[in-house]
Amino acid sequence: MARNFVQPGETITLPAPRALTSGQGFLVGALFAVALAAAAIGARVEGRRVGVWDLTKTAGEAWTAGQRIYWDNTAFRVTTTAAGNTLIGAAAQAHASADVIGRVVLTGQISA
């Protein structure tokens, strides 16, 4: 293996942009991750950038499987609304508009 390889990158350590509990999504610059532990604002936290996660979703939105999912960094929840939000992955399954948790496939892409 090349000597300049550092790590796979699925899990990375980032500064917590706000107080986080384990399982909460967060955005640092162009990187979205799910906190693997609780962290105070500014503390280093391990975040997972890929995988299938149940995350707090915007109520009132019905989802279809495979639909693009975005992170609302003001309300700190996932949404189907693209405008002003960051693409983080796709819906792993359909959800009713009354659902407050959505199953999301995080793709680990870097947002524009």
Rank of each mutant, 00 (worst) to 15 (best):
W63R: 15
G25A: 08
A82T: 04
T13L: 12
S97K: 06
D54I: 06
G66P: 12
V105H: 04
T80V: 09
F32E: 03
W53S: 09
W53K: 10
S22T: 11
L27C: 09
N4R: 11
G89T: 14
G66S: 12
V100S: 14
I12M: 10
R3V: 11
V78D: 10
R48D: 07
V45D: 00
D72E: 09
L20H: 06
Q67P: 00
I88F: 00
R77A: 05
G29S: 08
A62H: 03
I88A: 02
A16Y: 06
S111G: 12
A90K: 12
L87W: 09
L27N: 10
A98W: 09
A43I: 04
A43E: 15
R48H: 07
G29A: 07
L20C: 09
V28R: 11
S22V: 03
G108N: 04
A39G: 10
P15T: 03
I101N: 13
D99C: 08
F5Y: 12
W53E: 15
R103D: 03
A43L: 03
G108T: 05
L36V: 03
R68C: 02
R77T: 01
Q93H: 03
A75F: 04
A92F: 07
A65M: 05
V100L: 14
A35L: 01
T64F: 00
L27H: 10
T13D: 14
I69L: 08
D72W: 06
D99Q: 07
P17S: 02
F5Q: 05
W71D: 05
G47E: 00
A82V: 06
I110P: 00
Q109C: 01
V45Y: 00
D99S: 13
A96Q: 12
A91S: 15
A92L: 04
G9R: 09
W71M: 05
W63P: 08
E10Y: 07
G102N: 14
F32H: 12
N4E: 10
A19R: 01
S111P: 02
R18E: 04
G42A: 15
P8H: 12
G108V: 04
D99R: 06
F26L: 15
R44M: 09
T107P: 00
A96S: 14
T74C: 02
N4Y: 11
F26W: 01
G89S: 14
